[in-house]
Amino acid sequence: MIEFKNVSKTFRGQQKNQHVRAVENVSFKVADGEIYGVMGYSGAGKSTLIRMINGLEKPTDGDVIVDGESVADLSKKELLQLRRKIGMIFQSYNLLVTATVAQNIILPLTLEGLDKTEAEQRAEKYLKIVDLWDKRDSYPAQLSGGQRQRVAVARALAHEPKILLSDEATSALDPETTESILSLLLKINQELGITIFLITHEMNVIQRVCDRVAVLDAGVIAEEGPVVDVFTQPKQGITRKFAGVSDTLGVPRDILKPYAEKHRLISLQFVGQTANEPLLAQVQDKFEVTPDILAGSMGYMKREPYGRLLVYLKADQQDQFDGALEFIRSQDVHVEEVEI
C-alpha cells in the first residue's frame, strides 16, 4: 500500500551548513489493512516523512510509492486524485473555526465535486460513526479537544479514503481522550479496512494500536518490526530509551538499590494470557529461589494483554539463578536482568 524506497529529504538552507537532512535513506513497506506507526523524538523527521506520502513534501532522493504509483511521478491533477484517497488528521485538528461540525465535513466534499445531498448523507454517516451526530450544529470552539479530533476523523473518513495518515493526532489530548481516539482508530481499521499510518512520540500509542513500528532517530530508521518484538526486545539504544522509561516500571532507582545490593532484579514481559503466578511459584519450587514482586503493570499491546513484572530473586547460587531465567524463558516470557 505504502512503500518507501531509500527515501531522503534535505531542506536546503541559504548556505550549505544550514541544510537539514530531515530524513535519510529510509525504506519500509506498509501492508494493506495494517496499522503502521513511526515513533521518534521531536525533530526526528516524522512529519516530513508522513507528508511525503501525500506529496505535501517531495523527497530529495528515492521513491515513495502509494497504491502502486510513485508519488513524485504524478501530474498535478493525479496528485489531487491521490490525496483524495488519503485522509489525514493532525495534532491541532485543523478544522474551519467559522463552520459548524456538519459544514466542516460537507464543505470539502462539495469542493471535491460531490453534490450537496450526497455530501450531507456522508456527513451524517460519518458523524454517527464518530458519535458526534448530536453536535452537528456546534462550532469547533464549543467542542472539547477529543471531540474536535473526532470531527477531524469524520472529515477524513467522509472522503472514503483507503489510507488514513495521523500526525500526532493524540499528542494534545489527555490519556482518557487519547484512549477514545485510539479505539476509534482501531475500529475504523477493523470495520472499514482502512490502512493507518501514524506518527507519534508516545510509546503507548504505538503499543495500543500499531501492528508494526519503525523507530526514527535523527532521520534514520533505527529499528523496525512487529511492535511486540521491537518493544520487548529492543536492539537499539533509542528504542530501549522509549521502552525503557519503564524498565524499572517507574519505580525510582534509589528505592530499588537496597534490593539490588542483596539480590538480583529481573524484569519479566509477557504478551497474551500467560499465567504468571504459577510461573513464579514453579520457579520457587524448581530452583529453590525466592521470587518477590516489586512492581507490576498490565495493559494492552494492540488487542493482546501485555504485562510486565519487576521481581527480585533471592538466589544463593549463580546456577540456580541461571536455571530460573532459562525456565522462565522457556515459558514464552521475556526476561532480563535489571541493572541498577
Partner: peptide, 22 residues
C-alpha cells in the same frame, strides 16, 4: 491557521478553491 490550509491541501482540493472557497 496554516494547519487548516494544510488540511485542505491534504484532501486534494485545488489551490484556487482553497483560496476562494476556504
Amino acid at each position: 491557521d496554516p494547519g487548516t490550509i494544510e488540511a485542505f491541501r491534504s484532501m486534494g482540493i485545488s489551490n484556487s478553491k482553497i483560496i476562494w472557497r476556504v
